[in-house]
Amino acid sequence: MPRNPTMNDVAREARVSLKTVSRHVNGETNIDPELAARIGAAIVKLGYRRNLSAASIRPGRTSKTIGLVFSDLANPYYSTLARAVESVADAAGYLLTIASSNEEGPRHDRLVDRLLEQRVDGLIVVPPRHAARDWSEVPPPIPPLVFLDRPALFSGADAVLADNAGGARDATLALSRAGARRIAFVGDSPDIHTMRERHAGYAAALAEAGMAVDDSLTITTAHTKEQAERAVGALLRDDSADAVFAANNRSTIGALLAFQQAGRRLPLVGFDDFETSLLGNPPVSVVSQDIELMGRTAAESVLGRLRGDTSPVSTRVLPTWLILRGSEKPERN
């Protein structure tokens, strides 16, 4: 593995003193513009990054740290993923550093850069809905990298996904078989890969059942449970839908809140199980995915690369399964 470039390398490339490079890297501005330009060009050419962990790493040792960047720290889905990644990393003697991009491309890039500056040994990322920078623009070396929950955006990286389309198809067909003919899709933005895949599965199930996608029943603005509650509340008020496929856990919770407010419910299947899904009457039917397995698989993939695994990069798609608990059926009068 090639060694990481140092400030000495930058100084030699830019033909300046080490002290001048240090001042530039640490943000000092009273540097001759010509020298600053040469230093900046050398940094880009060599792919130099500040080593924020240098003081705590002895020569020949690694940081024993894995970085995890996901989308939303407040979402229980990602907290479960993080816990699973951490359990595997900890067992192997690695510290997990976690950061949330909030689905913002520039923030995601800053977090990735910061983790790389800290010399993490491996990196697991959930790409944001709008990438701000192509991974080809990230200066090498890039440590072992796994894309989680969404497809790989870098040719040298592994990926771990769930069968989003298949799970959404199963959920929609269950609602259709229970008698629904106007099934609403309630979820987040189609800019998110998982939402696109789940809507594709929903559309495939409608076609299989002899129904067409109705754009008026396709809601892709429910990023929060409150937004989902308002959307489902509108469906209840105008009687435009006779069932709901909620495309993530927040949309499911929002639908339940709308049912509670209206004093009646529609047949419902949600994507992703959650802790209180069994407390309703009836309990909530869900498409379940093994979130812990997804996190463990990603962590094991990174650790395998660190231990010398040189097999071709791969995308692993984990199965989902439908759990019917009764909420997919019409309400009894």
Rank of each mutant, 00 (worst) to 15 (best):
A74M: 10
V88A: 08
S79A: 14
N75A: 02
G67E: 04
L111A: 07
A91H: 12
A99S: 11
V126E: 00
D90S: 14
E103M: 10
S79K: 04
E104D: 14
T62E: 14
Y77I: 08
L95R: 05
A91R: 10
V88M: 03
P128Q: 03
E104A: 11
D121R: 06
A91I: 09
S100W: 02
Q118C: 14
E104C: 06
T65D: 05
F70P: 09
D113E: 15
I124F: 10
R129K: 15
L68C: 06
D113W: 11
D90V: 08
L73R: 12
G122Q: 05
I124P: 02
R119T: 10
T62L: 07
V126H: 00
V69S: 01
E104N: 13
S63L: 06
T65Y: 09
G67V: 05
L111Y: 13
S87G: 10
E86N: 03
T80H: 09
R129E: 09
A99V: 01
L123R: 09
L115I: 10
G93Q: 07
R114Q: 14
A91E: 15
P59R: 07
D113I: 12
A99Q: 14
N75P: 03
A89N: 10
K64I: 12
E103R: 12
A99L: 03
N75R: 02
G60R: 07
V112E: 05
T80N: 14
R107K: 11
T80D: 12
R58E: 15
H108F: 08
V120P: 00
Y78G: 05
D109E: 14
I124K: 00
Q118V: 14
P127N: 06
H108Y: 04
A84P: 00
D109F: 04
T62A: 10
E117Q: 15
A92L: 08
A92G: 07
I124T: 04
V126T: 03
T97N: 13
I66E: 14
R114W: 12
G67H: 02
R119F: 13
G122C: 03
E86M: 11
L123Y: 02
L95W: 04
A91S: 15
K64L: 14
A84Y: 00
V88F: 05
R119H: 12
L96E: 03
R83N: 13
Y78P: 01
G122V: 00
E103G: 08
E86H: 09
T97E: 06
A89S: 09
R119L: 13
L115N: 13
E104T: 01
R107L: 09
D109A: 15
L81A: 07
Y77E: 04
E104Y: 08
P106H: 08
S71R: 06
L81Q: 01
